[in-house]
Design a protein around this nucleic acid. Structure first.
Lengths: 219, 219
DNA sequence: AGTTGATAAATGATATCACATTATGTATGC
DNA sequence: GCATACATAATGTGATATCATTTATCAACT
């Protein structure tokens, strides 16, 4: 039995992915023994994975020692989105000088797959591909240190993702991705920054706000 | 026996603090059983703490499964500092509308303690207080989500911190903190942003670059 | 009927144990 | 003398056991 990766790492990736696409509903209680039983493992690797996710603020540790996926509020949502914009605009600008035609081409490939996912109404794939598209750009910078930080923000927006995406699938503008690509081709940093900001804003902000406002009104 | 906090958490905080002030030299090999023996604990809580730190990129996991504090390179350093500036300028701007006289006063108190630490040549205290000063500002924003992200960057700059601070203690301009305070008092966002950027730049950048250049030349 | 109190079940935290992998030190061969 | 092969020690990983705390269940009481 060749163990190239640890169980703990596998559990971590799996849960992380689930949270990132919003597969775990906010407020869900997570128990170590429950997850352990579901994955046929001992509680040990589970607990390690959960703690890592807690360190990244993907999972909340309640005072009772219970763990749950945090619920989104309007204030937190706005902060997370504006942080995401600040981070990604920064990372995009920092990547421009390392951009090559190969990278641009790969980004376009991902964008094409997004079109297909959109047609198939595959919202999880849409989210994952969108992340891939942006990560591809930031990863062009070889000394890059921003991606883990950005992914941490994606993670925290994750639980909310599915609900938001559901509401905006028809409004989603892949056009912004084309603007990003165009800015990269002409190595236009300013255009890239505004395109990135607009992409994030149009992607989630408007409908997210609308959703949260609706949620908080009825009470 | 009232356990208000877990062993794992204590180990995590302790190691994190040590890394943040640069007490652990880059390249040092960390073994779980070694740390466990040193702290009179079983390897279990140690491993959880180390994994959390690894998730935050404070500790590197080598392919041999060995763990170490990563060494700094010039490219990584520049990326980390520019990321730190982007993040803190953003967080500072986002905090202004929540600022009160109480917060400003507390920041000035911290700044005074920094003056004393500077006189006493207590470099670790200087680093910790500097972090406190900035965190106090960002924490004024009640919906704030940037602090964990910023601290993650501090952590990654940490191992390098002691060497840098040693080289710049006499150049360190606490004046910039006064500029930050002045900008807050007049609620001048633009001035706050430039003061924050200058504070970070003057604090570490110049001497850090110099150090890394010297280090990479002889080799 | 609803609330409270006691008991039982479940949970998280840590230590210990067992196993596979990796490192270290020693001796052997060239 | 130096490199290689082997044996031994050390290390990381995960399972199991144990304990304290928390949650759930249910009966008794007002």
């Amino acid at each position: 039995m060749s163990k190239d990766t640890t169980e703990q790492e596998a559990v971590y990736s799996r849960l992380r992915q689930a949270i990132m696409v919003g597969a775990i509903e906010p407020g869900t209680h997570l128990t170590m023994r429950g997850l352990a039983a579901a994955m046929n493992l001992s509680p040990t690797p589970i607990r390690e994975a959960l703690r890592r996710l807690n360190s990244e603020h993907a999972i909340e540790l309640l005072p009772n020692r219970r763990m749950t996926v945090p619920v989104m509020t309007l204030g937190r949502f706005e902060e997370l989105v504006s942080l995401r914009i600040a981070l990604e605009v920064h990372a995009a600008a920092r990547s421009v000088r390392y951009i090559s035609d190969v990278v641009i081409d790969e980004m376009q490939q991902i964008d094409l797959r997004m079109d297909r996912a959109l047609v198939n109404d595959d919202l999880d794939a849409l989210t994952i591909l969108n992340h891939q598209f942006h990560r591809k750009l930031y990863a062009a910078n070889p000394y890059q240190v921003a991606i883990p930080v950005i992914e941490s923000v994606w993670l925290q927006l994750g639980p909310f993702q599915r609900q938001v995406v559901k509401g905006i699938n028809e409004f989603y503008k892949v056009d912004r991705h084309r603007e990003i690509v165009a800015a990269l081709q002409s190595r236009d940093v300013a255009a890239l920054m505004t395109a990135t900001e607009n992409d994030i804003k149009e992607g989630v902000v408007e409908s997210g706000k609308r959703l949260l406002t609706l949620m908080s009104e009825p009470a």
